[in-house]
Amino acid sequence: MAQDNIIQVENLVKIYPGDVKALSGIDFNVGRGEFFGFLGPNGAGKSTTIKILSTLLKKTSGRVSVAGFDLEESSSSMKVRRTIGFAMQEVGLDDLSSGRDFLVMQGLLYKLGRREASKRAEELLELVGLTDVAGRKVGTYSGGMRRRIDLAGALVHRPEVLFLDEPTTGLDPQSRLAIWDHLNELHSQGTTILLTTQMMDEADQLCQRLAIIDNGLIVAEGSPETLKDEMGDDVVRISLGSPSDGIHEKAQSLVNAQSYVTGSAVDEEGLVIDVRDGDASAPALLKLLIENEIEVARWAVSRPTLDDVFLKHTGRTIRADSADGDAYDQTFRQSMGVGRQR
């Protein structure tokens, strides 16, 4: 097991000065080559965790090993730093230097040597599509370009493990997709990736495995699919055409008699039916109603989302209390909008 896990964390606790408990004992492992996500709201402890793993912060207690180096030993942090790359949320950029100079400097700091650093800078500029603006000062870059140059800066030394702290928070959808593409590409080349996010769809689409973190504790862990499957049934909503007295009750008793239906209710919109395997059940339900001369106006199938998972484990929805701007809020609302309401 030790060989497969590139990151091992046991009972990690972090208490900031002033007795502020950021992490109350978390355990998790990340396998070599895995795409792992930390999902949680602001202040949940995501950034604290990632900063401890990357040697920027000291833990209070617990055991942490990265790439086989136990952070307890003082000689480890230098070895860990050679192995990892860290792209931070919008920060850590040198605004007064050009994109190219920023990358060359990163190369020099990672001991590439002058010639290799220049060569690597050009490769990375090409990779993240910033060759055209390489001579411009980083301070003039747009949000999406900043994330990309930041990502490139974290890759100069071809790290085995890549840490990303909210890599797309605040970005417009197009820029987010560009970053996602880069991350998927890196992952397919064998890089282990650990990212934090407060966006459900990001966690859902990118990560092979997730830890949902809240108030310094991991409240759930597993693949997005497993987590959602644990939530149970899909929901089919059906609005009836020309509703008349008793029609809903009639429809309800019809659907309740089906083996794949596990429950149903009527609300102002129409029928809300809990089913196993919504995609297969919905056509059967529609056919049933139509055969019984009940007119169907609209229908929709929804599966549990990570929002529901989060709600179940924390008792509340993930909140957008960050002031990260409209793009974020919009994305957030969109992701909430497709969620299932109960």
Binding site: T55, L56, R81, M88, G92, D95, Y110
Partner: peptide, 13 residues
């Protein structure tokens, strides 16, 4: 404040 200091601290120097 810009976080560049952290970036330097992350480097193996």
């Amino acid at each position: 404040m810009s976080g560049y200091f952290d970036k330097l601290l992350l480097a193996p120097i």
